[in-house]
Amino acid sequence: MHPAIPGESRQLNAKGVIAKQLVSFRQFNFHPKLKRMGVDQPLITLGSNTQFTIWSVIDIETSISGETILFLKHVKPLVCYQRLITRSIDSKFHPQIKDKLGRLTDDIYKAGRDSIVDRSREAACAIVNAYMLKQGYIEKIKI
């Protein structure tokens, strides 16, 4: 019995054995499904619902036996937000926002708290201003 599964003792058979199934490999046709869904740059999360890392699929190949091989690259969390944000604003603001998020990402791993707060404020202002301009809430702005 496993300590993380408290009700497992109820699954004992007459001989005191618990029948379990272990799935070690399951084939999944990843590439055709992505094409049907219209996904160009898929992201994958590995881990649990509360503790995970984000990965970008950089290439998909098929092995000689027909299995799909995914080549993954770790993605910093702010890059994911950048992908979402850029869909909601005009493309002319993408370079400025990418720059500000890039500076914030660099500071998160290298700089002190004050610098991170400043970079966060700059990125948030650029994103909100560009979004509000697109929605028509404000007129001409300079980022």
Rank of each mutant, 00 (worst) to 15 (best):
P3R: 03
P3V: 01
A4Q: 13
A4P: 02
I5M: 13
L12M: 13
L12E: 07
L12F: 14
G16V: 08
V17D: 11
A19D: 08
K20G: 06
K20M: 13
Q21K: 14
L22A: 08
V23M: 11
S24W: 12
F25W: 09
N29Q: 15
F30Q: 01
H31Q: 14
P32T: 04
L34E: 03
M37T: 01
M37V: 02
V39S: 03
Q41P: 00
G47T: 09
T50E: 15
Q51I: 08
Q51C: 01
Q51A: 09
T53C: 01
T53A: 11
I54C: 04
W55N: 06
S56Q: 15
V57G: 05
D59I: 04
D59G: 09
I60R: 07
E61Y: 05
S63P: 01
G66V: 06
G66W: 07
E67P: 00
L70K: 05
L72Y: 02
H74T: 09
K76R: 13
K76Y: 13
K76G: 04
P77L: 08
L78R: 04
L78I: 02
V79A: 15
Q82C: 06
Q82V: 00
R83W: 14
I85W: 10
R87Q: 15
S88F: 13
S88T: 13
S88Y: 12
S88Q: 15
I89R: 02
D90A: 11
H94A: 08
H94G: 00
I97C: 00
K98T: 15
K100M: 06
K110H: 15
K110V: 08
A111M: 10
A111H: 09
G112A: 10
S115V: 13
S115E: 14
S115Q: 12
V117W: 05
S120G: 07
S120V: 02
E122H: 10
A124I: 12
A124V: 11
C125I: 10
C125A: 13
I127F: 05
N129V: 02
N129A: 15
M132Y: 07
G136W: 00
G136I: 04
Y137H: 11
Y137Q: 07
I138G: 05
E139N: 13
E139H: 11
K140Q: 10
I141A: 05
